[in-house]
Design a protein around this nucleic acid. Structure first.
Lengths: 249, 249
DNA sequence: CTACATTTGATCAAATATAATCAAAATTGA
DNA sequence: TCAATTTTGATTATATTTGATCAAATGTAG
């Protein structure tokens, strides 16, 4: 029983009962109390639970804005797994880009407590990260109501003025041949994110893996890592690429 | 039963019945009276309830600290009058700037149905105008949580790239000698709005008229009109200026 | 106002949880 | 395989939480 596995079980029970107890946890997971404590502390540090004396409680479920929440809720379990993994790669002091997809949006909950700078064109992300330790830089430009984000020439130029250590991006399709998008606007801004960040993570669930849709906008070697729940079979195509693959679930 | 959990239960009961009693609390939560007292004291200290002898009462929900909505609600009647008048000057096809003050925010309700472009640095304005006939251009840059808006160098440069027919701005003070602001950030972005618009309306209630506070950032002849509820006496100082004065109320 | 009951805060003691330190065990990478 | 690193657990010291007692403050009734 390693840390990752315990983490899952703890979060699972927390989700079910709303609370956990150090002593019970130690018994159930067959670990010492101090290890249980260490686990809880780490999870609390990642903002995934509230630490209490002798245990922990579920973190407040927050009211999600508008219908975006519904779309974001589709496949939420998998997306959360992906984002939890992504959050492990974000540390205090980081400057990161976040794009406007529903997957990337779910990353917010895991980074709220971190002392980082987020540059984003996504209104839901902005909304979610106000009033917390994250400092926000809004990408200006024409606002697209459907995507709840800014896009276009001015937005692209805005991004071009910044550099970030990491970018966390969603795509509509990814294969060994490159990254694919369903719209030009989306493709352009994603390209810009990639070019202005030192290290790019692509976040996508298995439905996007192997999919080559509409518009190819980047080669696979332009991004550094993909975080996904796809299985080895689906990922076999990436064998010959330099891509770092982070599997979850 | 730890403090966090008791806190939940206490606040829950408070919300239901409006009050709690030390003795009952001690029995129900199976804690000593002194612990119940300590809990109530701490919650009172956090402003979550009113401490009374022998128990506690629900705190007045209207007395919550100033979030933007409340601030915007202060003096709402007057501000609405001012904004209603301002809206009369906005017609389909207009491109307008709106700044991030609480007065200008109330203009939103009167322009929702209009077919115009709004360029703004105010997050509340953006929220208010989504999903309606107004097309939005967001001014990018670093987000200031207190003001719920973007400010700074990049924001100013963003504005510099656009021109609008009209600007609707709030100020912290206005007199025949010029416009005044309580912060440099605010002053700079307002100056930029003025210089990039053909016609500038200043929206302010009578408390701002004649007030010369902190930082003067523009001469009075740089703006074209002021919309206010101030009376003739307060406005007498503007007699010798070219300013168009639109009185309401 | 006085007398009485109740509530309260302070102090202390006991129980419990936590952090710190260090050693053992497991994992990792050559 | 061995050495280095990480993870885990035992021990001890520290901190927190809780409850009991009691004097002081507050509220109530006459």
């Amino acid at each position: 029983m390693n840390f990752q596995k315990r983490k899952q079980k703890i979060l699972e029970q927390l989700d079910r009962t709303g609370e956990v107890d150090i002593k019970e946890l130690a018994t159930e997971l067959d670990i010492s109390e101090i290890t249980a404590r260490r686990d809880l502390n780490q999870l609390a540090n990642d903002g995934l639970l509230y630490r209490t004396h002798g245990g922990a409680m579920k973190v407040d479920p927050l009211a999600k804005p508008k219908d975006f929440a519904n779309k974001a809720a589709q496949n939420a379990g998998v997306k959360d797994d992906i984002c939890r993994k992504a959050a492990e790669h974000i540390t205090d002091g980081d400057i990161i880009f976040m794009d406007c997809g529903s997957t990337v949006f779910r990353l917010c909950q895991f980074i709220k407590h971190k002392k980082i700078k987020v540059i984003t064109n996504s209104l839901p992300v902005i909304y979610e990260l106000q009033n917390c330790s994250v400092s926000i830089n809004i990408i200006g430009g024409e606002f697209n109501n459907e995507r709840q984000a800014t896009h276009g020439k001015i937005a692209n130029e805005h991004i071009a003025r910044y550099h970030a250590g990491k970018a966390f991006l969603g795509v509509d399709g990814i294969s060994a041949r490159g990254l694919f998008a369903n719209s030009e606007l989306e493709a352009e801004i994603t390209s810009m994110y990639i070019s202005q960040s030192a290290y790019t993570y692509v976040l996508c669930d298995d439905s996007k893996v192997g999919k080559e849709t509409y518009l190819k906008f980047a080669d696979i070697n332009q991004v550094e890592a993909v975080i996904t729940n796809a299985d080895d079979g689906k990922l076999a195509g990436f064998k010959d690429t330099a891509l770092t693959i982070l599997q979850v679930g």
